[in-house]
Design a protein around this nucleic acid. Structure first.
Lengths: 204, 204
DNA sequence: TTTGACTGGGATGTGTACATCACTGGTGAT
DNA sequence: ATCACCAGTGATGTACACATCCCAGTCAAA
């Protein structure tokens, strides 16, 4: 995993909570490179809205206002609704097997909740669904807003582990159903609903 | 206008046609800075999909495949359809005046077509409509795909100046109507249609 | 006591030299 | 004549020194 993905995941996993000041020199030491490539990575993260550079201060992990988070969730819902409508790629059996594998892992996790495993399963699911999206522009924003909003449902997951664990299994069951039916439209709406449920928790 | 906007507009205006190799040292000389800030700008442009850096070769203006352009157009249409549905900001009289001003400029341009004026009017219109979008996430992708696809309808505009000139006046009339009615939903659909017409020209 | 300016430390922003990579042109062998 | 290889040239990628900018802490004056 490269430096960009490492830092991105640390932010999404709240290893760097909002407000954290990332110092280029420290990161450069940690990864054994100079400040220059670190700066490039931080600029990428800034484009993704995860950090903001402040001259003379540091590069600070953003704390999105609630209104903006809500906007992102609403946008992700609309994006999900488009998955099945905009030239989705055919749902093949291999995808079903992969989803079933994730479902098994999620079920195992219900006994003992592992926050990092939870993250990884969600991440794999996101990638698999991204592979279904046929429209490149749609996939682009699907990724973009996923990472931009990931921190917030993750924060919620830490607070109520059992609920989200059950919800994940349920979601994967629905996803599996849609995939086995070969119904990309249904797959999109399943995602839309999961996002909507997350938004409801967020507003509450 | 800063360096980023300058280079972005040069790419959109086809001063740098696809395939053009941008050399950091040359740009650094032109703008009187070192390579470092130029690199930052080029990375921003790369994130926007307008250029791609190739080690040992140069930073090359991208030439998007037709399929991807089509994907972007379809996505922009869906985006436009959402403008009126996702908490649009109220359409005030000042907006109507601004649109009317653009309409007058577009009408004047019909006698003698000025490609740069055409660009500027479209740009202003885009900014004004962006101001109507209430959802920050929606506005973000509205901007993103606008600049990513700008080159292609601009290329078309250079080839058939009179048609696009008339079409622009007609579009501004429809926009003005929607604004005067205070109907943001209509405004979004007017935009959607303009994009759809552009896509039809593109495929033809 | 409070408020104001000032100064010092440390951060990002910038400039520049060097490392590494890719294409091109020439040269040699086949 | 043609193809393979190799060195040269010039590009981006990286490292590092310096410039500029914030903020915190201090000290003095009201």
């Amino acid at each position: 995993m490269n430096i960009f993905e490492t830092l991105r995941d640390r932010i999404c996993l709240l290893d760097y909570p909002p407000g954290t000041v990332l110092r280029e020199a420290e990161l450069a030491d940690e990864f054994g490179v100079s400040r220059t490539p670190i700066r490039a990575v931080l600029q990428q993260l800034a484009h993704g809205g995860l950090v903001a550079a402040k001259d003379g201060v540091g590069t600070i992990v953003t704390d999105l206002p609630r209104d903006e988070i809500r906007d992102i969730y609403l946008m992700r819902m609309k994006t999900a609704e488009l998955i099945g409508a905009m030239d989705p790629r055919p749902l093949n059996p291999a995808l079903g097997l992969a989803i079933a594998g994730l479902r098994a892992q999620a079920a195992d996790m219900q006994d003992q909740f592992d926050i990092h495993a939870y993250w990884r399963i969600n991440h794999e699911l996101h990638l698999l669904i991204g592979g279904v999206i046929g429209n490149t522009a749609l996939r682009e924003i699907w990724d973009h807003f996923y990472f931009k909003s990931a921190r917030h449902w993750y924060q919620h997951a830490r607070n109520s582990a059992e609920n989200v664990s059950k919800a994940l299994v349920a979601e994967l069951d629905e996803v599996l159903r849609a995939v086995n039916e070969g119904d990309a439209m249904a797959l999109g709406y399943v995602q839309r609903n999961s996002i909507a449920y997350g938004l409801a928790r967020l507003i509450a």
